[in-house]
Design a protein around this nucleic acid. Sequence first.
DNA 1: TCTTTACACCTAGTTATTCTTAGTATAGAG
DNA 2: CTCTATACTAAGAATAACTAGGTGTAAAGA
Lengths: 112, 112
Amino acid sequence: MRGQALKGHLDLLLLAVLSDGGMHGYAVIDDLRERSDDTFDLPEGTVYPALHRLEKGGYLSSEWSVVQGRRRRTYRLTDRGRGALGEQRRAWGEFSDAVASVLKGSPWPSTS
Amino acid sequence: MRGQALKGHLDLLLLAVLSDGGMHGYAVIDDLRERSDDTFDLPEGTVYPALHRLEKGGYLSSEWSVVQGRRRRTYRLTDRGRGALGEQRRAWGEFSDAVASVLKGSPWPSTS
DNA sequence: TCTTTACACCTAGTTATTCTTAGTATAGAG
DNA sequence: CTCTATACTAAGAATAACTAGGTGTAAAGA
């Protein structure tokens, strides 16, 4: 994953991962990497601020706990977050369909 | 189209549209809107600078002409641009597949 | 014991690129 | 004579992901 292909789509991914149930930030990173077959191997500096932003926006709630001496912050989708996930899914569908339509028109280069 | 969903994907779209043959900037905007069924209705301030950037990077070449009193700058893919299109197509495929994988796991909300 | 690795969190500042806004100019329709 | 469509441009704002650095605990290995 290079460039800023992710821009505008990160929230969707985070909300989707968290829709399975509560999860702490580090686990979100792992889950995202596994689910995407290593395509989304996101740095902590990307994910943590995004989670904070989503919580501030009311899409997530968080709770602190301590597990084996390590503090954890577990995030959970709020109702608003669940609604946003639905909307973002729809938007992603529209976006990816539109890209596919544009790409369909032009020919493929010689697949080397 | 809201937010910055486009970020990092604009070049792909421009290269794809231009791979059909030479085209001037305004026509690129129209073509992109039509091909995407109005999803990509991009402002000139987005497209023109992007075309300049792509030309500067050697992905496009341009030529001025005057048609019915209006000056036009016609852009065309270079070999490098054609190569980049192939690579960007591949990257898009990987990206969209990865998003689909992440989304697949989590359940859909009640489709209202 | 000491070091390294994995876990788990954080933030400030940089970067990249799209969008906003505003401007120039011609042609044609009303 | 004005408005709309065509056609191009550039400066600055805005956003969000990334870089780079930091804190601290636990467990494994040398």
